[in-house]
């Protein structure tokens, strides 16, 4: 695979040519913050974003995704994936996509996610601005991002684009690229390394050490109820998390009352009813009844449970949960550092 260079002045023409050929999604401004959205013009792209409100997962697994449609004749497929480019993803979000790729593919291969994923070419981009709660430099450092097709880094006078796959290589055709020089490649590496120095928050321990100690704290009910004492059980920490993927499934009728769809909706394990079952005659059993038990489940999912499958923690240090939490209790750095210090 090649590493190429494009001048800053030529980036707009490159993006315009790509937009002409295929739908392109990237970070765009939404009032004072950023979201991944379909680009209407190259000027909308904001490679200087810090973090987006929602992670890019919504492009493969939308907040409401139809699993099938039905009418009187029975069910039919609802899957209509579209070839597209997802441009400008920070490396922590690429790591999160790698994780959901593993989790949706394992055991029962979920084509409803995988088809959208397979039809997406991902171009990662360097982090120009760091968000206020980020800690991506100190979490899961043993795991490198994989699931991207190219990596774009802003350097003096232009951008270095490192193709990682054939699909990434194919993007070169849209712009006035030339082979990057050794100096440009070195500068790109320095730029990416420097971003890691700018995280405002930091885990003080390694993955295995954290997993062992957090697991050992499982039965410390006082700890978890104290950590969760201000929890509203709103699930915002789940909704904004790039590695959360739990869902609920619901059928809805169309207005004809004869056809409809079976849809999955993002769900959140912090909400009160998530693990509740009906036993009949009005009786219920909630297997995670208290906010503390639910809070613990989330931290265990992020720091312990999935590590063997993923090779690292199910947290990428984006800091979205910390910023989204109304009570400001969700921050994994504070929770984990407190457990590690105890």
């Amino acid at each position: 695979m090649t590493t190429s260079f494009i001048r800053s002045d030529d980036l707009t023409a490159f993006l315009a040519a790509m937009l002409e050929a295929t739908p392109v999604y990237g970070p765009v401004a939404k009032r004072s913050r950023f979201v991944f959205d379909r680009l209407e013009s190259p000027e909308e792209l904001r490679l200087d974003y810090d973090v987006t409100i929602l992670p890019p997962r919504k492009l493969f697994f939308s907040p409401a995704q139809d699993l099938l449609r039905f009418d009187e004749a029975g069910p039919a497929a609802a899957l209509e994936p579209v070839e597209k480019v997802l441009f400008g993803v920070h490396f922590y979000d690429v790591k999160a996509i790698d994780q959901t790729d593993v989790l949706f593919a394992e055991r029962n291969y979920d084509v409803n996610y995988m088809a959208h994923r397979q039809t997406t070419t991902i171009v990662a981009a360097n982090i120009q601005n760091v968000s206020g709660r980020a800690f991506f430099a100190s979490v899961g450092t043993e795991v490198r991002p994989k699931g991207h097709d190219a990596f774009l880094t802003a350097v003096d006078g232009g951008y270095v684009l490192e193709a990682r796959t054939e699909r990434g290589e194919a993007l070169l055709g849209y712009g006035a690229f030339r082979p990057a020089t050794e100096a440009e490649i070195d500068e790109a590496a320095r730029v990416n390394a420097a971003a890691l120095e700018r995280c405002p928050e930091k885990l003080e321990h390694g993955t295995a050490e954290i997993a062992a100690k957090v697991r050992a704290a499982f039965s410390d009910d006082d700890l978890w109820s104290d950590l969760a004492k201000d929890c509203f059980s709103c699930g915002s920490c789940n909704t904004v998390c790039p590695t959360c993927y739990c869902f609920d499934v619901e059928d809805t009728w169309n207005v004809d009352q004869a056809s409809g769809q079976r849809t999955r909706f993002w769900d959140a394990c912090l909400t009160e009813d998530f693990a509740k079952v009906s036993l009949g005659e009005g009786a219920t059993e909630n297997f995670r009844e208290t906010p503390g038990a639910r809070f613990r489940h989330r931290i265990m999912r992020k720091a312990v449970y999935l590590n063997p499958k993923l090779g690292g923690p199910a947290c990428v240090g984006c800091g979205r949960c910390s910023a989204a939490c109304t009570a400001d209790i969700a921050d994994p750095v504070r929770v984990i550092n407190r457990i590690m210090a105890s």
């Binding site: 949706f104 609920d248 999955r264 769900d267 998530f274 693990a275």
Partner: peptide, 14 residues
């Protein structure tokens, strides 16, 4: 809810 190990509702610890 999903029966295929994805949706998370039936999880007991890991």
């Amino acid at each position: 809810k999903c029966g295929v190990g994805k949706c998370g509702h039936c999880q007991i610890n890991d």
